[in-house]
């Protein structure tokens, strides 16, 4: 598999009106869904989600070992799947990588701006869903650069479908801890009681309730990094 550079894209600081929709099945998502004004600082953002190759390189260089390795990289990354997004990583695993590369995970608000931009696009590529621009119902993960035509306003690719992406922070409502996931995935479970699958709109997040690391990792859950810029 031909490798490629996951280059960084500059995003100039701006303000936008954050408004998000969510589906938590039953229950609520105890965050402020807006509309509210949000300021985005100057950022660099990964063009693609972090790949297996990038994450393998990180492991090789740092010897990173999670405290709880249950399901960690359960898919066993190898050269054949180097360009696929790394999955089976918890938020802690993602943060460890991001720190090593000098970045961090995007906040929920930043992620939405990176995907939707100042024109508040519904999907990274525009306002109309187009299944040919994302891995929406593809039965398996695909290379992060497989849908380059589906790039967002700033040039970020694979923001909708393929794999969910962690955002920063653990939210705590006093009784529960949860994180917010973005973008949707290739996978579609069949029933309405399942987590809603497929590619997701820019203004959608899903509440992942945190448990042990084995439960926090999934075959459809990866991440991308952002970097504070001047």
């Amino acid at each position: 598999m031909k490798s490629f550079v996951n280059k960084k894209i500059f995003i100039e600081s701006n303000e936008y009106t954050y408004r998000v929709e969510h589906l938590t099945l039953e229950g609520t998502c105890s965050t402020d869904h807006g509309p509210r004004n949000v300021k985005i600082k100057n950022l660099l953002v990964d063009k693609y989600p972090v790949t297996n190759q990038q994450y393998s390189f990180f492991l090789k260089k740092t010897g990173y070992q999670p405290r709880d390795s249950q399901r960690f990289l359960e898919h066993k990354p190898n050269k054949k799947i180097f360009n696929l997004p790394v999955v089976f990583v918890s938020q802690n695993d993602a943060i460890a990588y991001a720190k090593w590369v000098g970045g961090r995970l995007p906040t929920d608000e930043e992620w939405q701006y990176i995907a939707a931009g100042p024109k508040y696009l519904d999907w990274p590529w525009g306002n109309k869903f187009n299944p040919s621009l994302c891995n929406h119902d593809g039965n398996k993960l695909e290379s992060v650069n497989a849908y380059r035509n589906g790039e967002s306003w700033c040039g970020c690719v694979d923001m909708s479908g393929n794999c969910w992406e962690w955002t920063a922070g653990i939210h705590d409502d006093g009784n529960h801890q949860f994180a917010l996931l973005r973008g949707g995935s290739y996978f579609y479970a069949h029933d309405h009681w399942h987590v809603g699958g497929g590619a997701r709109k820019n203004n959608y997040h899903w509440k992942l309730q945190i448990l042990n690391e084995g439960m926090n990792r999934a075959a459809t859950l990866g991440f991308r990094c952002v970097y504070d810029a001047k």
């Binding site: 099945l25 249950q70 699958g197 992942l208 309730q209 042990n212 084995g214 439960m215 075959a219 859950l221």
Partner: peptide, 18 residues
């Protein structure tokens, strides 16, 4: 409401517990 995030079925989710 965790089932369906990936292909893991209901029995596999027990294996992922501590």
């Amino acid at each position: 409401p965790r089932l369906g995030l990936d292909e893991s079925n209901q029995w596999q989710l027990y294996k992922y517990l501590p």
